[in-house]
Design a protein around this nucleic acid. Structure first.
Lengths: 341, 341
DNA sequence: CTGTTAGCGCCTTCAA
DNA sequence: TTGAAGGCGCTAACAG
């Protein structure tokens, strides 16, 4: 079933059907006939033919490091929500944290396939930036901020400030930090600098032994790092963790060591993942608006595709602190199980 | 840059270049020349032209209810891993638990776009089944089992048996169950029937007031249902929850009621989500192999596409019980934070 | 082993 | 307002 069949059945030319389908320079009478035939036959134009002819694919590509990461899934959820309201569809490339594959998909998408790309980046190499800066198609970097690349980023530095500040307000004097690799600009560098800066602004000492780098993004990595700090023997009364999952590991480690949260040590982190409000103790954490960030990135991308504006835009998302039990706060009325309280 | 440019530069015909790109009925000498030109120019064939010509799209569609659900994300992760090893790419449709949209995407994919579909279903209506059974293209149902539709499903019934049996082995005599809507065959009907059957086989009484249906898949829904059972006043010493997230809500509710897990009440559930081994108490849960199920579905689909075998295949995934603190078990050596023990 | 050729289905001038 | 016609880039006979 193709356009010429429809044309024949409706007694018009293929050009008229095509106009009907697109712009609409068609008399009311013929419109009726065409509409009727299309409904009766259930005809849908071939997207590959349309693409071949117009060069437009109606496809956007998303490159993610790991779809089974909660924050990544939230961002993708946001993107798909926005995209679903347009005529675009989403091509998903899940690289499994493999940097080489990221580059491959970046190239693959550029050469063919898609009208635009959302790239959820973690470790940005020179190669990544080179490709992105010379990309022929609209591309939005999501979750990281880099010069000369349109990006939707999260306020990692500010989030760390909020989380650290919260510890200080709780009376913590000796604050530890569980960080991640500095090669990750957002989670590593930005959050660490927010932490450092806040301590300095409050004239608190930064003890080297109280900063430990986690080997990865697993709870176990957080527990190992926490243990390392415990082993150092330097006393502390607060811990700022670079991510919730690390905080869970850290709290677990503290529990095993017989240290209670928040009575002896307060804990904060960043991400406000789903379990943060369910864990025991409920975790004080900073929400970065991952889902909204995804929506924003999707909207900007579609706008760039449709208006051909390659203008750089850098958008930072709001972040917000949720104070919970791990810093001694009581659960808010609005969240958790208010039904029961 | 198209195939005829390459042909001209290499001094051969387009057909030869095409053969080089596909089957390869080309002399060694011309192969060399073509390879050289392609590398120099960075040429990639236009996938839309290929699709138009061959009818093959090299695209598979995945329809999911909610990408930000952990189990769904795991399945998608599995699918993408398998698909990445082929020449196919993945089109993701995230319906946001909207049944109408599921049907729309099912049709959209059928009419155009894709060579095959993996459908992660939850609530299967007559319409769903009708469309799937008359689908012109290979389609795999993932996570549910239905007659006349190729499917990769999880052993929900058996998982419930394992989880319930575990409670009985722990000495529980009055076991409650937090279930979900029976319209969800896998999570609702199958898990409930596994629970019922196990009680009967063990000559244990099923008390109506000890079975409560959760309004949804949120921790809060689990907490509300648990509270309803508490309010009934009927004593119980074990709870089997239809899903981990429900169990977290239930445990939270019990904690607020001053009931300790596992000392007074043992808790088990199904999903073995990431937090199950991190929660406090660590949650005894049955793993359904979501990720492996995704890989299986992807592999079967690609096989069906490539071999044209529309033969039905029904594959059930393995399930496995992980006994943890919520039923009084000590953490296994192999999981959790063995580094610290 | 290689080149010529005829479309795949659609959109888009151009002329009417 | 409409129809005729060319061609997007590629593949698969077919003939050599």
């Amino acid at each position: 079933m193709n356009i010429s069949m429809i044309a024949k059945l409706a007694g018009v030319s293929t050009a008229t059907v095509s106009r009907y389908l697109n712009q609409g320079y068609v008399s009311e009478e013929k419109k009726q006939r065409i509409r009727e035939v299309i409904e009766r036959t259930g005809y849908t134009p071939s997207s590959s033919a349309q693409t071949l002819r117009t060069g437009r694919n109606n496809l956007i590509g998303i490159i993610v490091p790991k779809i089974s990461s909660e924050s990544v899934a939230k961002m993708v959820d946001g993107i798909t929500e926005v995209v679903a309201q347009s005529s675009y569809q989403v091509l998903l490339a899940n690289t499994g944290n493999n940097t080489e594959r990221e580059l491959e998909y970046l190239k693959l998408f550029r050469n063919n396939n898609v009208d635009g790309v959302v790239f959820i980046g973690t470790l940005m190499s020179k190669k990544h930036l080179a490709i992105m800066r010379s990309y022929k198609k609209p591309i939005i970097l999501l979750g990281q901020q880099e010069a000369d690349v349109s990006s939707v980023y999260f306020h990692d530095h500010e989030a760390a400030v909020l989380a650290t500040d919260c510890l200080i307000r709780c009376g913590c004097q000796n604050i530890a930090h569980l960080t991640v690799t500095l090669r990750d600009k957002a989670v590593g560098r930005e959050r660490r600098s927010g932490f450092m800066e806040t301590l300095q602004n409050n004239h608190l000492r930064i003890h080297e032994s109280l900063v430990a780098e986690c080997a990865g993004f697993r709870a176990e990595d957080g527990a190992v790092a926490m243990q390392k700090i415990l082993d150092s023997g330097v006393p502390f009364d607060g811990v700022f963790c670079a991510a919730d999952i690390i905080a869970f590991g850290a709290i677990d480690c503290l529990r095993r060591a017989g240290i209670s949260v928040p009575e002896q040590v307060c804990v904060t982190s960043v991400d406000n993942c789903h379990m943060a409000s369910l864990y025991s103790p409920r975790l004080t954490s900073v929400d970065l608006s991952h889902r909204t960030g995804g929506m924003e990135a999707g909207a900007i991308l579609i706008d760039q595709i449709q208006n051909g504006t390659q203008a750089f835009s850098q958008v930072g998302m709001q972040c917000r602190l949720y104070e919970r039990e791990s810093t001694g706060a009581v659960a808010e009325q609005s969240e958790g199980f208010s039904v029961l309280s």
